[in-house]
Design a protein around this nucleic acid. Structure first.
Lengths: 207, 207, 207, 207
DNA sequence: AATGAATGAGGCTTCATTCAT
DNA sequence: TATGAATGAAGCCTCATTCAT
């Protein structure tokens, strides 16, 4: 973290401030994740170990802080989803994506919900569209190459998958099964919902 | 409607009071559904056409009102799920359950989310367990009779299904596809995830 | 204050509320007059004998309260100025106007200053213009009928007169000389500044 | 500019510090004049091109800074009034005084108001009295030598004149008529109010 | 019993002042 | 000594709840 040769003290002030910035973000992540979006500013400041004034020096308002977090969550999520989607095999890619999302969730908690839910879009317009687009691309690829069934309802699939992360269920899943277990369970379920059925009659629209 | 012998006014008052009780519940359902759980008491009272004082005569506190609604939602949900689950064929039963849930959602909005999410459990302990139990019964039956695949991860399946209703996605789905369309789409997706694969090799845990 | 025959109780609630409204206005007048426009809302509420919530039920915000007061001050001032200006003799009219303004000042204190100063015009646009217009009319009439000197700088005269009431000096004057004494002193001074000089040479622009 | 023998740096530092002191005062004058007395310390520091910490090294508190400014304004005002009052002819002296005050106002803005208004006297006790005394001397002289009318109400006259500068009206006057025009208009009005009436009957206390 | 005005604790935010660098 | 980040007291306003009518 320290560039060698750089003067220690000259940048210390800045470094402190930057550290506080990060600590506030982390604290906010934490507190929002645990208490929900109604959490009090004071609690965040306390947890960050700073006064409220400091928090307000770094973020102009409650919404400003929230926006910064959503942005961060989005960026992280998007970047990891894209990386995961790069995997050749669409099925593996979907698994990777779900693992990534679970991981992001672990860190951002309730904020992932918000980021995926599309609420608070006024704070971060278009953020959700980008995620949806990335997902859609992956699923389309799978359908195109025969990995996923031709009649897969892609928007529905995305909505359902997002729902799992939006609903707060992941918290419990992770608590009960651990990170890998939760990701595996989600993957298994949704792969079953997507995968093309090799041969057999009798499958299909079962009403 | 007229019980003979009862004093005119007393009956009237009771009828008025009962009517108010219902109107407040309906208004609260409406307002919570539209505005979310942060909705103001005043708005609910206004929409019910009563003063806040009257609202507080019927429900001891904000949480009391919320509890009553969750209870109602739960009961409604549970009753309809049980009815739907009675259907012989497990696949049809699952579809019926999803339709029922969608319908309930339409009426209770954000409250369904809460009821299914298991948040606010302090308001209505055990409520969630009953729902889970009903679901579990249905799915187990399907697995037992071969309709659903043997390795179905039932808790995961329930969590995912609940998530769809918990996440607020249904609102959009219903808005975009109408009530029946939304229910059908959800059903299709989750049936694919549950149904046993008739024959084919190559299916199964697709890693 | 009580219209005979009106039901006592039926309007009592309203009467209480109206009374509070007035008490808050009076308290605000008082407190703003003494403490200036930075006075705390809490102090006003205390002095009115109500909670802050009640104050906010009657006035949507600090500015709303201020606006109501400015309006009231303006209306009072304007009405009395117009009445005073009706006096036939322009000189007497000017005296009457000054007496009226002094009286209004006694009641509205710092608010008169604001009303006359034209600050806070965003709260009450055009308010100041009406006052100026009323003054101007009076002075023009005096010039036209020869009571006031032909070269009277009317805008300057108005500015100076307003200044006396805007500056807070009246408070001291009234304190030192009483209401009538203050009004008389102001009148004397400004009449001297306005009155036409009967004959004599040597008077006029004295550079 | 270089005092021989003084150590280089110490001198520099002192010069820097003195320069900062002046820049802060100038900035404060500016900002208070434009924004009023509620102006923020931060804005003053910014405009002075120093950090708030530096401002606080030079002035112990917000009130300390204000006090210094009032003092400065007072001294400037007093000195110029005295100089102006030296003029032989009392009428010319009054004009000169008004010109001087207008000029000071141009520079000190809202601070002149405060200085003349006698508010904030706790910041600068007795300051106002000196000004009043200077004014009183001038007017008494005029009365004594027959330039001003014998029945001139000197305290009232002073109050009115101060009011013009206290009220903020000068800002507008200067804006509309320029510095000289404003000063002339004020002078004309107040000279009319003070000057002795040469002969004519019918003049005098006009009730 | 119904009404809605009154209450006041508590949240968000600002800004004078302090202090580590 | 200069800097500006940090601090936290204090003000404004909201809204769940109470209470007089």
């Amino acid at each position: 973290m320290e560039e060698p040769g750089a003067p220690e003290t000259a940048r210390h002030e800045r470094a402190d401030s930057a550290a506080n910035h990060e600590r506030i973000l982390a604290a906010a992540r934490d507190v929002f994740a645990r208490r929900g979006l109604d959490a009090e500013i004071k609690e965040i400041a306390d947890r960050a170990g700073v006064g409220v004034g400091t928090l307000y020096r770094h973020f102009d308002s409650r919404d400003g802080l929230l926006r910064a977090l959503i942005l961060q969550t989005h960026d992280d999520l998007l970047q990891r989803l894209r990386a995961a989607a790069d995997t050749q095999d669409a099925a593996h890619a979907l698994r990777a994506v779900i693992h990534a999302a679970t991981d992001v969730y672990r860190q951002f908690g309730a904020l992932t919900e918000v980021a995926l839910a599309g609420r608070l879009d006024h704070l971060r317009p278009d953020g959700h569209e980008e995620l949806t687009a990335a997902f859609t691309g992956l699923l389309r690829r799978g359908v195109a190459d025969g990995t996923f069934r031709a009649d897969l309802d892609i928007p529905m699939m995305i909505a359902a998958l997002e729902s799992v992360f939006t609903s707060g269920k992941v918290v419990r899943l992770v608590a009960e099964r651990g990170y890998a277990g939760a990701a595996a369970a989600i993957s298994d379920l949704f792969l079953h919902a997507c995968l093309a059925v090799p041969t057999g009659p009798g499958r299909g629209r079962a009403t």
